[in-house]
Computed example of a mutant assay.
Amino acid sequence: MTGAASGPSYRVRTAPDASDARMRGRRYAIPFDRVWSAAFRLLSGGLPHWSLTWEDDEHGVLEAKVPHRTLRPAGLVRVRVYLDADAQTCVEMFAGPADGGRDLGASRRRVLRFFEALDRDLAPGPGQRLTPIPTAR
C-alpha cells in the first residue's frame, strides 16, 4: 500500500513513493539509538492514550494500541526503526483499526500524528532529516 486506505481493511502504511510526502516515513542522519528511544517514548505514553504492547529491539519493531475514543475506533500501530544501506536511520509505520473494520481516516491521522511528534522530539538539525529512499527488503 502507498499510504492510503485500500479496500475494506482501512490499513495504512508508509511508503517511499506515497503521493502524500507526509506518508513516506522518515530517514534521519541521527544515530539509531536516539531515534529508537524517541519512538519508544512516544509509544509508551508520550502520545496521549497510546500504550506500548510489544517491542523487539533486535528487529527494531515496536507495537502499540490506541484505545477507542469518540468517533475514533481502537487502533493498532507498528513502527519499524532500522539502518539503511547508507547507515542512515529509517522509520516506517503501519496503522489499522483493531477490529479490522472502518476507521474514518483514524489510521492515517495516527501515522501523521506519530511522525509529527517524532520530528518534534528529535528536533533534527539542518541535513539530519533526509529524503526517504526506496529500500530493498
Rank of each mutant, 00 (worst) to 15 (best):
T2D: 08
A5E: 15
G7P: 07
G7Y: 00
P8F: 06
R11K: 14
V12H: 01
R13V: 09
R13F: 15
T14M: 04
A15D: 09
P16A: 12
P16C: 02
P16F: 08
D17C: 06
D17T: 11
S19R: 08
D20G: 05
D20N: 10
A21W: 02
A21N: 04
M23S: 11
M23W: 06
R24Q: 15
G25P: 01
G25W: 06
R26D: 05
Y28E: 03
A29I: 05
A29L: 13
A29R: 09
P31I: 07
P31Y: 02
P31T: 03
P31F: 02
F32P: 00
F32V: 01
F32H: 11
D33H: 05
S37N: 12
A38Y: 00
R41D: 15
L42F: 00
S44G: 11
S44N: 11
G46R: 10
G46W: 09
G46N: 08
L47A: 03
L47R: 03
P48H: 06
P48I: 12
P48T: 04
H49T: 15
W50Y: 10
S51H: 11
L52H: 00
L52T: 06
T53D: 09
E55S: 11
E55W: 03
E55T: 14
E55R: 08
D56L: 00
D56Y: 00
H59V: 10
G60L: 01
V61I: 15
V61L: 08
A64W: 05
A64G: 03
A64M: 06
V66M: 09
P67D: 02
H68G: 05
H68Y: 10
R69F: 14
R69K: 15
T70S: 12
T70A: 14
L71D: 13
L71Q: 14
R72D: 06
R72K: 14
P73M: 03
A74F: 08
L76T: 09
V77F: 04
R78M: 10
V79G: 01
R80Q: 14
V81W: 01
V81M: 05
V81C: 00
Y82S: 00
L83A: 07
L83W: 02
D84E: 06
A85T: 13
D86I: 00
Q88E: 14
Q88N: 15
T89N: 01
T89Y: 03
T89W: 07
E92F: 05
E92W: 03
F94H: 07
A95I: 11
G96H: 06
A98N: 11
A98L: 14
A98V: 09
A98S: 14
G100M: 04
G100Y: 03
G101E: 08
R102S: 07
R102H: 12
L104A: 15
L104G: 11
G105W: 07
G105V: 10
A106P: 02
R109E: 12
V111L: 15
V111Q: 04
V111A: 01
L112Y: 06
L112E: 08
L112D: 04
L112Q: 08
R113I: 07
R113C: 13
F115A: 02
F115P: 03
E116G: 11
A117C: 03
R120Y: 12
R120D: 04
D121E: 09
D121I: 03
A123N: 12
A123H: 12
A123I: 04
G125F: 02
P126E: 13
Q128G: 08
R129L: 14
P134E: 04
P134H: 08
T135H: 15
T135G: 13
A136W: 08
A136Q: 10
R137A: 14
